[in-house]
Write a protein that binds this DNA or RNA. Structure first.
Length: 182
DNA sequence: CACAAGATTCCG
DNA sequence: GGAATCTTGTGC
């Protein structure tokens, strides 16, 4: 079974988010360097979720969230940090999975990509990756990680939001040293 | 056009 | 605990 066929991303964010744990996010930077990390922490943002950017309807910023699942949604937060999301669900549903932390294959204890802003800085993801289909041709894609299979997953409330705090929509790999926070 | 808020991070 | 820093959405 190929986990990465088109329908894989058509699941709801709440279903997709835990399934992304243990997969490798890869990016080839503009100067041709391959950067990659294993996803160890994610959060789901759903259409009727008060914490979700798309909940208030389409705006210029959130347009990618209303595309079909499988494209990227990148936005700038606090004027300083980019956050990378994988859009999920059917077209026009308005949902996505925020990638919150990566474990570096060669430095499993590093905190260099432990946090949504930090992983974008590490992978060199910015607005130019916004709204693109995740694929090797677009130099931004997912692979199954050979290092992690069937990770033990912890489910908690999300971080940094003011509404929708009650939903248990944050997922991370138990005992990972590279998550953003306990 | 002005203004407040924000899915963060780092320092004190 | 608080600042940095600036885009975006909203309201006048």
């Amino acid at each position: 079974m190929n986990l990465l066929d088109k329908d894989f991303f058509k699941q709801n964010a709440t279903e997709l988010a835990p399934k992304l744990l243990g997969m490798t996010l890869c990016h080839i930077t503009p100067i041709g360097t391959l950067k990659k990390g294993i996803i160890v922490e994610t959060e789901a943002y759903m259409p009727d979720d008060p914490a979700c950017h798309a909940a208030k309807g389409k705006t210029k910023r959130t347009l990618p969230m209303f595309e079909e699942g499988g494209i990227s949604y990148v936005y700038l937060i606090y004027g300083m940090y980019y956050c990378f999301n994988i859009v999920s669900g059917e077209k026009n549903s308005g949902q996505a999975v925020l990638i919150r932390a990566l474990q570096l294959p060669e430095h499993p204890h590093s905190k260099e990509a432990a946090g949504p802003g930090k992983l974008c800085r590490y992978l060199e993801i910015n607005k130019s990756q916004n709204g693109i289909q995740l694929s090797k041709e677009n130099k931004l894609w997912l692979e199954k990680s050979p290092l992690i299979s069937n990770p033990e997953i912890v489910t908690t409330t999300r971080i940094g939001i003011s509404a929708g705090k009650e939903n248990l929509w944050r997922f991370y790999i138990k005992n990972s040293n590279s998550i953003s926070k306990k």
